[in-house]
Design a protein around this nucleic acid. Structure first.
Length: 272
DNA sequence: GTCGATGTTATCAA
DNA sequence: TTTGATAACATCGA
């Protein structure tokens, strides 16, 4: 479940390890992640290209190629990007392999196959899935946060935090953790939020996700970093998947409910 | 063997 | 308009 901190962890590692490298060849084991692009076109346009930059927008990784094309990578629920030696056996659920000119392979692995690696040409500003995204969660000032909240007349705050058109980058883990930080119940109606609660929520989003990046993300199920290592943030979770366990602040038992079809974890005493 | 849960997003229905 | 259900897919545990 890579969210912004997990994707950013991989981006920072990729920038360090593969920027400037050349993609000598590719192997397409499954073409599903490619979307509408044919294997022939994918190979033709990617092979021989240099990796100029590795960027991120929300939970989407963007590899800029020397040809002007870009690769948009979304890991969705279970996707992994791994940098490995070619001698490492190809694991089940590996769908794409990029052979780099330094002898390493970048492999795309995805258990549930929801993720994608899409080749897009030219201007990223016209790519629909990027255009539709709301402001970056970590680049949003309190004023901007207040303004976009003010535009909402109703709705539960948890669902809003998960809506990528509203704010981009937050997923189920960090929405729960940010709401705990702010002492706000996940089902609170947005319109009832007080000024100090909005400020605390804004602060929580920034503090928790920045901290999660420094711990290289949360490894709950399938997420690992570029080197296959687990992130270290899970022990810092206050509520996410801690149902039935004592709240780290007050000792009350953490609850789990469904909000908008998603599981929401919270402390019934700290989050009124 | 079946059911439900896991969690991101597009799409479609109400 | 907005919300909610569903589907895409694979695995695990009850």
């Amino acid at each position: 479940m890579p969210e912004l901190p997990e994707v950013e962890t991989i981006r920072l590692q990729m920038k360090e390890e593969i920027e400037g490298k050349k993609i000598e060849s590719t192997k397409v084991i499954s073409d599903k992640p490619l979307g509408n692009t044919t294997v022939e076109e994918f190979k033709e346009r990617v092979e021989g290209a240099f990796i100029k930059d590795v960027k991120r927008r929300a939970k989407i990784l963007i590899i800029k190629l020397s040809t002007g094309d870009s690769l948009l990578i979304h890991l969705k629920l279970t996707g992994r990007l791994l940098l490995l030696r070619p001698s490492v056996p190809i694991e089940k659920h590996t769908h794409l392999i990029f052979n780099l000119n330094d002898g390493h392979q970048l492999r795309f692995w995805d258990l549930r196959r929801f993720g994608y690696v899409k080749l897009v040409s030219g201007k990223l500003k016209e790519v629909l899935e990027l255009k539709k995204l709301g402001p970056e969660a970590l680049e949003l000032s309190l004023n901007e946060f207040r303004n976009i909240l003010a535009g909402k007349r109703s709705g539960k705050i948890k669902s809003l935090l998960l809506d990528q058109h509203f704010i981009a980058g937050i997923g189920n883990i960090y929405s729960d953790e940010a709401l705990f930080y702010a002492g706000i119940h996940p089902e609170r109606n947005v319109a009832t939020l007080k000024e100090d609660e909005i400020a605390r929520l804004h602060e929580g989003i920034r503090k928790i996700m920045s901290s999660a990046i420094s711990y290289r993300g949360s490894s709950m199920d399938d997420y690992v970093d570029l080197f296959g290592k687990q992130g270290d943030f899970v022990p810092r979770h206050k509520v996410y998947r801690r149902m039935g366990k004592p709240c780290k602040a007050c000792g009350s038992l953490i609850k789990r409910i469904k909000v908008g079809g998603r599981s929401a974890h919270f402390c019934p005493k700290c989050q009124v």
